[in-house]
Amino acid sequence: MDTIEIQRVAEIEDDNWWYRERREIIARELRRLGAPGRAVDIGAAGGGNTRVLLDHGWRATAIDNTETAVDLCLAQGMDAYYADACFLPLPSGSFDLALALNVLEHIEDDATATAEITRVLRPGGTALVSVPCDMKLWSTHDVALGRIRRYTRRTLTDTLATAGLALDRVWSCNVVLRPFVRLRRHRMAHCEDMANVHPALNEGLSLLTSLERRLPLKSWPGVTLFARAHRPT
Rank of each mutant, 00 (worst) to 15 (best):
Ile107Leu: 05
Thr209Trp: 12
Gly77Tyr: 09
Ala35Gln: 14
Leu88Glu: 03
Gly93Thr: 12
Leu97Gln: 06
Leu30Gln: 06
Val223Glu: 13
Arg187Asn: 07
Leu207Lys: 14
Leu207Val: 13
Arg185Gly: 07
Asp55Ile: 06
Ala85Asn: 01
Arg38Cys: 09
Leu207Gln: 13
Ala166Ser: 14
Asp84His: 02
Asn174Asp: 14
Ala115Leu: 08
Ala115Asn: 07
Arg213Lys: 12
Asp2Val: 01
Thr152Lys: 03
Val143Ala: 15
Ile26Phe: 05
Ala10Leu: 04
Arg122Glu: 07
Ala60His: 01
Ile12Ser: 05
Ala60Ser: 05
Cys191Gln: 10
His141Pro: 05
Asp109Ile: 09
Val197Ser: 05
Arg182Thr: 12
Ala98Val: 13
Trp18Ala: 10
Met188Tyr: 03
Thr114Leu: 02
Asp84Pro: 01
Arg184Ser: 15
Leu88Ser: 04
Ser210Glu: 15
Leu88Cys: 06
Leu156Glu: 02
Met1Arg: 02
Asp158Thr: 09
Thr152Cys: 04
Arg154Ile: 11
Ile6Arg: 08
Arg147His: 15
Ala115Trp: 05
Asp168Asn: 12
Thr3Asp: 14
Arg59Gln: 10
Ile117Pro: 01
Arg169Tyr: 04
Ala115Gly: 13
Gly47Met: 01
Arg122Thr: 07
Val176Asp: 00
Tyr81Met: 11
Glu5His: 07
Ile25Trp: 09
Glu212Lys: 08
Ala113Phe: 02
Ala166Glu: 13
Ala229Trp: 02
Ser172Leu: 03
Ile4Asn: 13
Lys218Asn: 13
Asp71Ile: 08
Asn196Leu: 15
Thr159Gly: 05
Thr50Tyr: 00
Arg154Gln: 14
Ile148Ala: 15
Gly57Ala: 12
Gly164Lys: 02
Val143Cys: 12
Leu30Arg: 09
Trp58His: 05
Asn174Tyr: 14
Asp64Leu: 00
Thr66Asn: 01
Val120Glu: 01
Asp84Ser: 08
Glu203Cys: 10
Ala75Ile: 06
Trp18His: 08
Asn65Tyr: 06
His198Cys: 07
Arg154Tyr: 08
His141Met: 10
Ala200Tyr: 10
Glu24Val: 15
Asn16His: 11
Tyr81Arg: 14
Cys133Leu: 14
Arg213Leu: 12
Pro36Thr: 03
Ile4Gly: 09
Leu211Asn: 03
Leu160Asp: 00
Ala10His: 07
Thr114Tyr: 02
Leu205Pro: 01
Cys86Phe: 08
Glu5Gln: 14
Arg231Asp: 03
Leu211His: 05
Asp79Val: 07
Glu203Ile: 09
Ser210Gln: 15
Arg228Leu: 11
Val170Pro: 01
Asp15Ala: 11
Pro132Ala: 13
Arg23Met: 06
Asp168Gly: 09
Val197Phe: 09
Arg32Glu: 13
Val175His: 00
Gln7Ala: 12
Trp220Gln: 15
Ala111Ile: 13
Leu211Ile: 12
Glu108Lys: 11
Asp14Lys: 09
Ala195Tyr: 04
Cys86Asp: 08
Gly48His: 00
Cys133Ser: 15
Val131Met: 04
Arg169Asp: 11
Ile148Glu: 15
Asp2Asn: 12
Pro91Met: 14
Ile4Met: 13
Pro179Asp: 08
Ala60Pro: 01
Pro89Tyr: 10
Thr61Tyr: 02
Ser172Pro: 00
Phe87Thr: 13
Asn49His: 06
Arg59Thr: 11
Glu5Pro: 00
Ile107Trp: 01
Gly43Ser: 05
Met188Phe: 04
Leu53Gln: 02
Leu121Tyr: 04
Glu105Val: 04
Glu24Arg: 15
His141Lys: 11
Leu137Lys: 03
Ala200Gly: 04
